[in-house]
Each structure stands twice: as structure tokens, then as C-alpha cells.
Write a protein that binds this DNA or RNA. Sequence first.
DNA 1: TCGTGATGTTATCACCTGTAACAATGTTAC
DNA 2: GTAACATTGTTACAGGTGATAACATCACGA
Lengths: 212, 212
Amino acid sequence: MPRNPTPLKATYHHGDLPHQAHQLALETLREHGDAAISLRALAKQLGVSAPALYRHFIDRESLLAELAISGFESLRERLQTVDQSSPRLALVDIGLVYVSFAQDEPNLYRLMFGGRVLPRGVHPRLDVAGKIAFQVLEDTIARAQQVGYVKPIPLSLMTAAAWSLVHGLAQLTIDGHLPSAKAEPHLAEGVVTLLLEGSLANNEQQLKDTSP
Amino acid sequence: MPRNPTPLKATYHHGDLPHQAHQLALETLREHGDAAISLRALAKQLGVSAPALYRHFIDRESLLAELAISGFESLRERLQTVDQSSPRLALVDIGLVYVSFAQDEPNLYRLMFGGRVLPRGVHPRLDVAGKIAFQVLEDTIARAQQVGYVKPIPLSLMTAAAWSLVHGLAQLTIDGHLPSAKAEPHLAEGVVTLLLEGSLANNEQQLKDTSP
DNA sequence: TCGTGATGTTATCACCTGTAACAATGTTAC
DNA sequence: GTAACATTGTTACAGGTGATAACATCACGA
């Protein structure tokens, strides 16, 4: 479904190049990884010359940065679907949603967190997009802490631990170091629960003993 | 210090190309990342033509694979320096050593775990090298479990959680998402301890209350 | 000594990112 | 309406890369 208002007439001006290039590049990324994204091939598929893309993307890396930004936005949306009515359940759920996002979109996730291909500090919008997604995780933890469900340890510490855990699990599973969700459906839940049990307030030592 | 037995005579045959290429590539990797490794540039620095390298490395990727393999061996060596006399202290220490390895060698670590650039199943030696390094971590956890220090949960679960945590923390810090060890010297310790407290056997609920 | 395999060489291909110079199209001011 | 300008295309090209083919040289064992 092209956005081009005059799709039938073959005009000199494409009319929707930036958007369609973004979409096609995203598709290529998801199917074949970031290394498969070539501006020339992209231009050819779009019926346009290669330098035309440079009118809209400073260079290849900035195109990748845009893909990563939209990836972080997708991640944030997915994380925000978690039911927050119970801070306790939300803690586990948000971890599982995080991991499942990475497993659903391994190539996109790798681009988002592939530090070498997209270093921090170069694309400010990318940096803030990452922080915003991360914020959902932190807010969830903060809520659980305010309710007294988790220990009163520094929020930054608890958040760092939670993020490290889900990010590490995501990365290790999509790279084949740990069994995938298909092979071990309950791995993520077990792993997340394990960390959570180290973070409980004293009056909530056993997860199983407490019911919503 | 060239291995070449006749370093002074400029011979047609280099004599030590594979080894020196590996070393120089490793140096380039550590300083500038995997993307900076070019066989042409490498050959030029070694005073040799580019195709000569293809006599010793099937392609660029197999050279990277060799670097990653030596990286896993270095990691294993570092992990094996951990004092195992106290299973309890070894648990924390091995986590800290793991994270510090990644922070000392960010580019090497990224290559080792950059799933896209070196996919699993393509270079068997690489896969086993990764498993062997991982084994040190698992053995340490198994020991602590046999001593009764950690819960009798499945070893694979506990190991997956521990590896995920340290790997995630390593990756997030070297990519600038979480504060580095310089900015937050005790972050790694706090994070590792947090997971550990969720894994303690019931009679060891408080880390601080137990002395070696 | 001689030839054979290992290890170099040069020449070349196909592909890539990125830039320069130019052309067609929209747009805005007069 | 039309002239001037900005936008977004185009072709041509520079420089770099991985990889292969065909040829040259050397070391070493039969």
C-alpha cells in the first residue's frame, strides 16, 4: 500500500522515497540482518538511483540508526502493553515481554544493541529512544518498590540487574548460546523469577505463597 | 619479536604469515573493532600481497572466527584464575571476572558474542570454544550447589540465569547503556549479589550473616 | 637433481559507500 | 504567468573491499 498519492503515474519525483526506503530496509533487516542492507540494492528495488537515497539519509549508518530508533519504539510499545494493575505480576511479565520481543525480532534487536555498528553518542535520537524504552522497565520496578514488594535497594541497582538479566537472556538465546523459547518454553520465566526472589522484601520471601 | 627464523633476509616466503596475521588482526580488532579489519590493509602492513592471506584463511570471516576462538580461550583462562576454595566467594568472583574481561576487551568481547557477524554452527571450533569457557561458569555453580549453598534448582536454570546476568551487564556497560565500572565501581558486585540472594538455600538467606 | 606442493605474486571481477556535476520538478515572490 | 530558488531526482566517477584465476618462486623429499 504505497503512500504515493499518484501511484499510477510514473513521475520523476518518487514522492515517498524516505518512508518506503525505511520500510523496505526494515524488511530486509528483519529477514537477512543489517549486513544485508545495501543502499544500491535498496535503490534498485525501489526503482530509483542509489544517490537519490543520500538525499534522505546522510549515510548508511544513519539509515540503520532510524531502523534502530523505530525498533526501540516498537519495544516500548510492546513493554507498555503489560498489565500494570498488579506490580508483582507486572515485574515478571515485563521481563517475559522484553525477552519475547528480542526473540521475535532477532535481527532488529541485534541492530538496536549492536554497539559497534551503532555506537552511542553519535545519533542523539537513537540514544533517547533507547532510554525511553528502558524507562518503562524502570517505572515498573519503581512501582513495585513503592508498593513495598521489592527490597528498598537503590532503584538504579535493581533496574540494572533486571535489564542485564533480560538483555543477556535475550541475546544469548537469539544467538544460540542458550536454548530458544521453543526448546525451553519456561526458561525465561524461571530465570526472571530467580532474580526476583533475590529482590523480594522480607515479608514476601516465597513467590508461590502470595496470591494476587 | 618475529617468529621468522630468518628475519633479516628478505625472502620470497614470509615464513610466519598465519601467526603474524592473527596477531596483527587481533591488535586491530582490540583497538578499532572488527569492522576495521581488512585483509588488504592487513596484508599491506605485513608487507605481503592480499591474496597471500587467502592461503591461510579461507575468507575474512574465518579469520574473525579464529580471533573469537582465541578470545574464548583468554576468557576461559581468566575465569580459571578465580579462587575456588570457597564455593560461595567463587560465585561472586567469577561473575566479576567475567564482566571485567568484557570491559577490558570490549571489541574482542563484541566479536565473540556478535551473533550476526559470526553465526553459530558455521565454525565448529568456535562453538566448542564458547562452550568450554561457559563450562567454567557452570562448574562453579555446580560446586556451590553440591555444597548446599544454593537452592537445588536445575543446574541449567541457575547457569542460564547467571550467564544471562553477567553477559547482559557486560554488554550493556561496554555499549554505554549502563554506567561503566569506572563510573560505578560496585555496580557489578551489587547486581551479581542480587541474583545470588535469589538463589540461596533457605538456611543462608542473608549473605552478610555468613562468614567464610 | 628434479619435480611437486606450498606459498607467494599480479591481474581482474563484482560489489560496495560516498561525492560531484547536472537535470527535472515543485514552489514561491513578484 | 513567469523568474528565481529549493528539492529531489539523474549519470559519472573515485576509492575501497572481498574474492578468484593464472602465474612465479621457493623448500624439500624421492
